[in-house]
């Protein structure tokens, strides 16, 4: 079973040279720490920066330089800063090659829910609805089940949706799963995890081919 960093590390393997990538808050943020050697990838943060760098050294933090998670960051050489409207022109105009975000639920048709639990929790969608509506390449990074042990990979989402038919791939602590033709397709299992464990943790339809492999991290 993978921890949060393991999930991030596996998703980092999906990165390609020259890509502009938007990372959501939580597990996706960790992906920046696992970019494979030799790849040139630039991270966009929707509050208005391309070329986001690592956290500043203690004492060097600047309140005027943060990421979308409100964390203090640095700008790499060659970074660009812009307003929210330009930022979302990048996102909505399809200029971002990969979007990685967290989710509370994903359905087998690719619907995603990650912004609201009616009556209990309302944080808002932030940029997530824009990202999922306009990106062709969306990977969800999340745990396979919630804190109560319930599956987050469902035949249908029960929470208010963030977007419809948009998620293409999910990387969880248990597996790598692709969504196509309205079903979950198991591609890889995490080290030490069995196909049966993934089946049990998946409420929606899960197609298991005979080519399922173990993740190489």
């Amino acid at each position: 079973m993978l921890d949060r960093n393991g999930i991030a590390k596996r998703i980092a393997q999906e990165l390609q040279d020259g890509w502009y990538v938007n990372l959501g808050i939580g597990i996706p943020t960790l992906i920046a720490n696992h970019v494979p050697q030799g790849l040139s990838v630039e991270f966009q943060s929707e509050n208005g920066i391309l070329g986001m760098g690592p956290f500043p050294y203690e004492g060097d933090e600047d309140a005027d330089l943060i990421n979308a998670g409100k964390q203090t960051i640095t700008a790499l050489a060659g970074a660009a800063i812009f307003d929210s409207s330009t930022s979302f022109a990048m996102i909505r105009g399809g200029h971002i090659q990969l979007t990685v975000l967290g989710a509370m639920q994903v359905s087998q048709s690719g619907d995603i829910a990650n912004w609201k639990i009616p009556g209990k929790m309302v944080k808002g969608m932030g940029g997530a609805m824009d990202l999922v509506a306009s990106s062709d390449n969306i990977i969800v990074a999340m745990t396979h089940t919630n804190r109560k042990g319930q599956s987050k990979l469902l035949s249908q989402c029960t929470l208010p949706l963030t977007g419809v038919k948009c998620v293409k791939k999910i990387v969880t602590n248990l597996a790598v799963i692709e969504i196509r033709e309205g079903k979950f397709h198991l591609l890889e299992v995490a080290p030490g995890v069995t196909v049966d464990q993934v089946k049990e943790a998946t409420e929606g339809d899960l197609v298991i081919s005979n080519t399922v492999s173990e993740m190489i991290l």
Partner: peptide, 25 residues
């Protein structure tokens, strides 16, 4: 949605009464 918020403010300032977007569909 955050992009719609930015675009709606821009539209308000730029004389665009409304626009279509896939965000939130």
């Amino acid at each position: 949605p955050q992009g719609s918020l930015a675009a709606r403010c821009y539209a308000g300032g730029a004389g665009i009464p409304a626009f279509f977007t896939p965000a939130g569909y």
